[in-house]
């Protein structure tokens, strides 16, 4: 089956308070479409981590969620500073988030590892000074 439903969101980089709204909306969409709670949780948590990363590091970006019968693709794209060492960034506990972000309970160095943990595949394309695009797939 190649039928696909696309949801597109612009992630506001200035508003830390509203961060997560796209993920919450995706959760509702997937629930309405009849996906299992576990699939919905995996997609929405992975997407939330990506949203938070874009707000913390990249002044926002965009999120596209493509829903197929057998899988859900999440594509997160930003024009931020890029990730200079992806291998390091993928290590649990490694973070470059500033102190004010840590005081909110983020910046624990768990964002990218959680995105990997909750998805079946994850690919990061990043160029320093240009931006980052992350492709994630959750199989249904």
């Amino acid at each position: 089956m190649s039928e696909c439903v696309n949801f597109h969101f612009d992630i506001d980089g200035d508003n830390f308070t509203s961060a997560g709204e796209a993920s919450v909306r995706i959760k509702k969409h997937l629930r309405d479409m009849g996906f299992s709670p576990e699939t919905i949780r995996r997609v929405s948590v992975a997407m939330y981590e990506g949203e938070i990363n874009m707000v913390i590091h990249a002044d926002g970006g965009s999120a596209d969620v493509n829903v197929y019968v057998d899988r859900i693709e999440i594509i997160l794209a930003d024009s931020g500073p890029g990730i200079s060492n992806i291998e390091l960034a993928m290590q649990e506990g490694y973070s470059t988030a500033p102190d004010n972000i840590r005081s909110l309970g983020f910046g624990a160095g768990m964002g990218l590892p959680n995105m990997k943990r909750y998805t079946d595949s994850m690919k990061i394309e990043s160029e320093v000074g240009k931006g980052t695009t992350i492709y994630m797939t959750v199989n249904v």
């Binding site: 830390f16 308070t17 961060a19 997560g20 709204e21 993920s23 919450v24 959760k27 709670p37 949780r41 929405s44 948590v45 939330y48 981590e49 938070i52 909110l104 309970g105 983020f106 624990a108 768990m110 964002g111 590892p113 959680n114 943990r117 909750y118």
Partner: peptide, 29 residues
């Protein structure tokens, strides 16, 4: 918050001292 999202189970009582608005998003997800 990321730790909680990665480890807490659906249905848990989540005990925390964090009280900013992001806890609501985390709880929703």
């Amino acid at each position: 918050l990321s730790w909680v999202m990665g480890r807490a189970n659906s249905g848990d009582a989540w005990i925390t001292i964090m009280s900013n608005v992001n806890i609501v998003a985390v709880a929703t997800l």
